[in-house]
């Protein structure tokens, strides 16, 4: 049972959280202007790296707030957590 450090509540058990997929995938400004392919990329395509990935998480059984985290997909180590209005931290 991994501990996830919620930026508002501190470390809590992973069962309190809900996964929200890749972070920094913004809803397009003008969906109507996109080609079918570009729209499909927004809807269906997500990165799947072996290594650090910026993700969205929601502390659904706690403060119910969304935040972002950089997780190493090989080890599940959370390298950083940050609020939605903060930029993605640089991970060396």
């Amino acid at each position: 049972m991994q501990l996830i450090p919620c930026p508002w509540c501190g470390p809590r058990e992973e069962a309190e959280f809900h996964y929200g997929g890749q972070a920094h995938v913004a809803y397009p400004e003008d969906p109507a202007a996109l080609s079918d392919e570009d729209w499909a990329k927004f809807v269906f395509f997500r990165a799947n790296p072996s290594g650090p990935l910026a993700e969205r998480w929601s502390h659904s059984a706690g403060c119910r707030r969304w935040f972002n985290a950089v997780r190493d997909t090989r080890t599940h180590d959370l390298l950083a957590v940050y609020r939605l209005d903060e930029p993605r931290p640089v991970i060396s």
Partner: peptide, 12 residues
Amino acid sequence: EWMEEWLQTEWP
């Protein structure tokens, strides 16, 4: 939760 997700992540 769907409402909260959009309110918090896309349209804060």
